[in-house]
């Protein structure tokens, strides 16, 4: 199917604040994979104080940040919360990564018991177990509805899903939401939350294309099939990351 001349409008939330782990890579991947198909990918950066008008967008991205960065955006995010909920209920696709994922849950409780309120898109909450607890850091391999997903996680918080959330994937390698129940991330309608930061879309082209496909459906109200691309380089990067994860998890069998 010819997709040239089509357009998706991407809202990138807090790119100047929530960007610590190469989250720009997701935007680069979306732009590349749209351009290769003649689709215009218009990205608008929305930061603290800017309005978010759901009708103007087809895809919403938010990245990760440190604790202090999450505190910095928290009030503004709560203000945007109702608009973001409207967007999600209208089946706008969302990718919320790491710190952004946590604040799309009900709340984040830091190691001193301080609460950062979230916007409750996902039925989950996150607790930081304290400064002496190990961070969940390392390579990740997941089984998901989008196939095998590879990436890297680095988070102190442990996330627990409520009955209203389904996980994004099942952990094959790595820690996932809380290093104990084997779940990773969350999904609600077309919103996806995950701890896999930075380069999750480039190395997982099926996930990138799924978001583009959903964004086009949101924009034009019909199914638009994406022409396939030559993904040999993407596949090699994916396999290489998967092999690294397998090798490293053998090196550290103590992981629970």
């Amino acid at each position: 199917m010819d997709t040239s001349g089509l357009q998706i409008r991407v809202a990138h939330l807090y790119p100047d604040v929530m960007n610590i782990y190469g989250d720009r890579g997701n935007v680069i991947a979306l732009r590349y994979r749209c351009r290769a198909r003649g689709i215009e990918c218009a990205v608008v950066e929305i930061t603290i104080g800017d309005p978010f008008v759901p009708a103007e967008f087809d895809l919403l991205l938010v990245g990760g940040g440190q604790d202090r960065e999450q505190r910095r955006i928290a009030d503004d995010l709560v203000e945007k919360g109702p608009a973001i909920r409207d967007a999600v209920e209208s089946d706008m696709p969302v990718l919320a990564v790491c710190g952004g994922f946590q604040l799309f849950g009900h709340r984040y409780v830091d190691h001193q018991g301080g609460i950062i309120p979230g916007i409750g898109i996902f039925d989950l909450e996150t607790h930081h177990p304290g400064p002496r607890a190990d961070r969940s850091i390392g390579d990740v391999v997941l089984e998901t509805d989008f196939g095998e997903i590879v990436g890297f996680e680095n988070h102190g918080g442990r996330t627990y899903l409520g009955p209203g959330a389904v996980p994004f994937g099942t952990v094959v390698r790595g820690f996932g939401n809380n290093a104990s129940d084997g779940s990773e991330g969350a999904r609600y309608r077309n919103a996806i939350g995950t701890y896999l930061h930075g380069s999750v879309l480039p190395k997982n082209p099926a996930l990138a294309d799924a978001l583009i496909h959903l964004a086009l459906r949101h924009r034009y109200g019909r199914e638009i099939e994406l022409p396939p691309l030559d993904d040999a380089t993407e596949s090699r990067a994916h396999s290489s990351a998967s092999a690294v994860a397998a090798r490293r998890s053998r090196e550290t069998p103590a992981r629970s």
């Binding site: 960007n19 782990y21 890579g25 390392g138 890297f152 380069s199 690294v244 490293r248």
Partner: peptide, 15 residues
């Protein structure tokens, strides 16, 4: 490389 001294996370290349 992604050994300990390089940083095991290669996400930084996207920055």
């Amino acid at each position: 490389n992604d050994r300990f001294a390089d940083g095991q996370d290669v996400s930084w290349t996207w920055d």
